[in-house]
Amino acid sequence: MSTSTTAPVTTKWWSGGKSPFNVEYGKLMMWYFLMSDAFTFGAFLIAYGTTRFATAGWPNPNEVFKSYPFAGENANAPLVFVSIMTFILIISSVTMVLAVKAGQEMNKKAVVNNLILTIIGGLAFLSCQAWEWTHLFHEGAWWGRNPFINADGTQSTTNFTNFFFTITGFHGFHVFSGVIINIVMLIMTLMDKFEQRGHYLMIEKAGLYWHFVDLVWVFVFTCFYLI
């Protein structure tokens, strides 16, 4: 809602009878839900960090994540594939913003187009992740199994793969549910549900969720692949 500019300066936001933040309750709830989800992911990542701090050695991510599809056995291209994944998610976030903006302008066609693009982005990301997981699995990595050795050449514990699969899996699960939500939004748009209601507020909430998924990836990307 870009109503902040339309509201008179003298409004008593807190005096009751209206939303103090000028947003409907659904959006408020979505925000606070995302806060709680941030604590879920935060706890995971902090647990990961704590374990890393409590462990003497750790595998070098550049040794682990260095392949990409169709590359063959001896690929050595660290950071390349994951940066593609990162950009896919950023772009899908952009199309989502555009869908939300189109909704505010009541421009159904643009909403539909941008939602479709966002869904494609989400599916592309999930496919990349599926490929990466399969690849690692074939290298012998899984929950409880870690074929990689520490950067300093010592024996590694399994917590490297344990955390990797758990956290990226949990993030992937969020992406997946985001895609489902967006598909529902798309169907509702096509059925003119929002035109009938006179507003596309629901898409704003779906958008918040989607951006949050992107946001989490920023952290996951940094914590697992970069540092």
Binding site: S2, S4, W13, P20, F21, N22, V23, W31, S93, V94, M96, V97, G207, L208, H211, F212, D214, L215
Partner: peptide, 11 residues
């Protein structure tokens, strides 16, 4: 993207 900067300060 999540538009928070354009929300009311208290929020």
């Amino acid at each position: 993207f999540m538009h928070l900067k354009h929300e009311i300060r208290n929020m």
